[in-house]
Amino acid sequence: MREQICKLVAEKLPELAGVVALRQTAVGTAPYLFREGDDLSQLVLEPRYPLPSVVSMLQKRYPEARFGVVARGCDARALVEMAKRNQIDPERLYLVGFTCSAEQAAECYCAAPAPDTAGWPQAMVVGVPVAGAPPNPLVAQYEEMSLAERRAFWQQQFAKCIKCYGCRNICPECFCEACALEDPLWVEAGMLAPPFPMFHLVRAMHMASRCVACRQCELVCPAHIPLTVLYDLMRRDIGELLGYEPGADIAAAPPLSLTLADGMVHGQDQLL
């Protein structure tokens, strides 16, 4: 698969300013902008980095340039949500998609382990798509838990938070210049794990229509807080209540910015 991707990247590079992908050197692996003439034998697919955020930054810095990106399923979904919020321009992006393995899908509880190129102006997928993996069992177990049990669970988890902001920093959908999480109106400045988890609840609300389940936030969390359980629940709700699936359809507008007349709500009885 890597060879196929490299071949495709090599073919496309002459017409692009560069391709965002991971580069492996002696000292480590990290995002890199491959340009024509670069050594593509250094292009690798692991580990995970938020490449969509790199694309966004490059496109903003170079508003005329066309880039390519080597993206897995969740990266492509993230790019879809970013496009809707003017963080990337799909017209200036060539998507080199690749499929994750069944093992990887299981590890991430990923429902869609291959990029969906529908709606993308220019895209290509390498690899044979595998079936989606079942959801995180913790999400199902959640229904069984009493309010007291849920409270105990999250109190224990949130007490570990060291306020690194890593979950926000790594998130491709967190791009606001001014962040509510840094506003002392909402989140206490300078306090580690305050008793009421404003930080996490505010972030969960903000993720509701954006989270594409890339799970980078959980991977980056030094306190190992299972953040995606909360985000999975919110994503499920937004599907059930507003009929919206983040990252699925580049043409579907984000639901919370629409009026009822735009047809984004199943019926208000259900909501109240």
Binding site: L147, E149, Q155, L201, L230, L233, D237, L256, T259
Partner: peptide
């Protein structure tokens, strides 16, 4: 404001659920 409360009706139910997920009745 014509559609101001359309936002309310969309996001408050989400918050309602979120509260219950962390154990607030």
């Amino acid at each position: 404001y014509i559609s101001g409360n359309h936002r309310t009706i969309k996001r408050m139910p989400l918050l309602h659920n979120l509260l219950s997920y962390v154990g607030i009745h």
